[in-house]
Design a protein around this nucleic acid. Structure first.
Lengths: 219, 219
DNA sequence: ACAGAAGTGGATACTGTCAATCCGCTTTGC
DNA sequence: GCAAAGCGGATTGACAGTATCCACTTCTGT
C-alpha cells in the first residue's frame, strides 16, 4: 500500500509518526505488548485513526520497533562468547539478558510468543540458539559448568527467573538477582562454599503482593 | 437463598449436582480456573441454567471444591516439619507441592491470585506461612540450608519452578524436577560435588514449544 | 491566497468472550 | 394426574479490543 511507498510525508505527519513510535516504544516497554493502539494514540495526543493510517495494524508497529530490541540479545550473547572467562561470560549473559527484560516488559512477550507474521523477529530469535550452544560448550570446556547442563537449560533458566522479575517488579525490582544467584550456584561444576547472596529476601508481607501481581493467563 | 436451605433435593437434581461437581473438578484441574460454567455444563451434559440454580456463581462452585485442595498443601507442610531430616523435609515439601501443582492447574490459580470473596480459601493460605517459617528454621538448625535463605524464599522458588511446569506440561511433564534439583543444589549450605541431574534436558526443538506454551497475561 | 491533497480525530461498528437470566417445557413424587 | 421442582439453552448484557469511516483541519505548491 501507500504505507510502503515511503517517499513523501508531510511535515506534521512525519512529526506525528515519530511521536507515535516514541510513545509506543515507551508504553510497550512499561506495560508489555498488550497495550492497545487506542492507548498509544491517546498518550501521543493523536486520534486512533492517525495510528492506523501510518501502521496497517499493531503487528506492523511492533515489528518496526522491536527488531532492534532482539538484536540486543544477540549482541549480548556474542559478547558473552568473547569473554575470556567462559563462566563469567555465561553468568554475565544471563544477568544481562534478564536485566534487559526487567526494564522492558515487551521483550518478554516477544521472546515468549512470537506470533507468526513477525518474520523478522522470528529470524533473529532463531539466531540465538547456535550462540547459546557455543556459550555452554566453552563453559564446559573450562570445567566450571557442571557437565550435565545442556544448552536448552539456558532459556529455561531465563524463563524461571522471568517469573520473579514479573511478580516482584513493583515490590522489589532487584529481587530476581537473588534467585539468579541461587540458580547459578546450582550450576557450578565444583561449588565451593556459596558466596553470600547479594540481594536480601522479600519481607513477609510482600509475598502476597508478588503472588497476586503474577498475572494469570487467560484460559 | 434457597441454595443454602439444603434439606430437600429431588433425586435427579441431586444426581446432576454431583455430576456438575465431578465435571467441574476435572475441568478445573485440567485447564485452570478459567473454564467457563458453560463449558462445565456442556461437559456434564446439562444446561447452564442447571449449574446456576445449584451454585450462585462461579466463585461459589470453586470454593466448594477447592478448600480441601489447599488443605493438602497444609498437610504436606506439616508432614515436612515432622520429617526427622529437616533438609529432606524441605526438599520433599517443595517437590510434593510442585507435584500437586503439576497435576492440577487450578491450584496454581488459587495460590497465585485468590480473589477476595474466597474467604475460606484465603484463610487457609495464610495458615501456610508460619509453617514455612518453622520448616526453614529447622533446616537452618541442622546446618544443611545456607544461612542467608529466608522463609520468603520458599514461595518464590515455587513461583519460579511453576513457570517451567506450566510451559513444559505438554512437552515434558517431568522437566520441572530438573530445575528444582538445580535450585535445591543452590540452596545447600555446604554443597559437595553435585549429584547428577535425574531428568535429561529438553531437546532443542522443544524449546520453542515450551516458550509459546507459556501463556501470557491478559493485561 | 487559495485549491486541493494530505492529514486528522474520535465516534462508531464490529468481533469475541463470558457471566448470568429467563421462561416454556419436562420430570418427579405424592 | 397434577402441582412443584427441575431443566435446557437461547438470550441478554457487560466489557474489551481492533479497525473503519468521514466530516473537518492543516499543509504546500503555485
Amino acid at each position: 500500500m501507500s504505507l510502503v511507498t515511503d517517499k513523501p510525508l508531510r511535515k506534521d505527519a512525519e512529526r506525528n509518526r515519530r511521536l507515535i513510535l516514541d510513545v509506543a516504544l515507551e508504553l510497550f516497554e512499561q506495560r508489555g505488548l498488550g497495550v492497545t493502539l487506542n492507548d498509544i494514540a491517546h498518550h501521543a495526543g493523536v486520534g486512533v485513526g492517525t495510528v492506523y493510517r501510518r501502521f496497517p495494524d499493531k503487528t506492523a508497529l511492533i515489528e518496526s520497533l522491536f527488531e532492534q530490541k532482539l538484536q540486543e540479545l544477540v549482541a549480548l550473547m556474542q559478547a558473552a562468547i568473547a569473554d575470556p572467562d567462559p563462566w563469567h561470560g555465561l553468568t554475565g549473559f544471563l544477568e544481562g539478558a534478564l536485566e534487559l527484560q526487567s526494564h522492558d516488559l515487551a521483550l518478554k512477550d516477544l521472546v515468549l510468543d512470537t506470533p507468526e507474521g513477525m518474520k523478522r523477529v522470528c529470524r533473529i530469535r532463531s539466531r540465538l540458539m547456535p550462540l547459546g550452544i557455543e556459550l555452554v560448550r566453552r563453559a564446559h570446556a573450562s570445567g566450571q559448568l557442571r557437565a550435565d547442563i545442556g544448552p536448552t537449560d539456558i532459556p529455561m533458566i531465563q524463563l524461571m527467573v522471568m517469573n520473579v522479575i514479573d511478580g516482584a517488579r513493583e515490590v522489589d525490582p532487584q529481587l530476581w538477582r537473588r534467585y539468579l544467584q541461587i540458580v547459578l550456584q546450582g550450576l557450578r561444576a565444583d561449588p565451593g562454599p556459596p558466596a553470600p547472596l547479594e540481594i536480601p529476601p522479600l519481607q513477609h508481607d510482600a509475598v502476597d503482593r508478588v503472588m497476586s501481581a503474577t498475572k494469570l493467563p487467560r484460559r
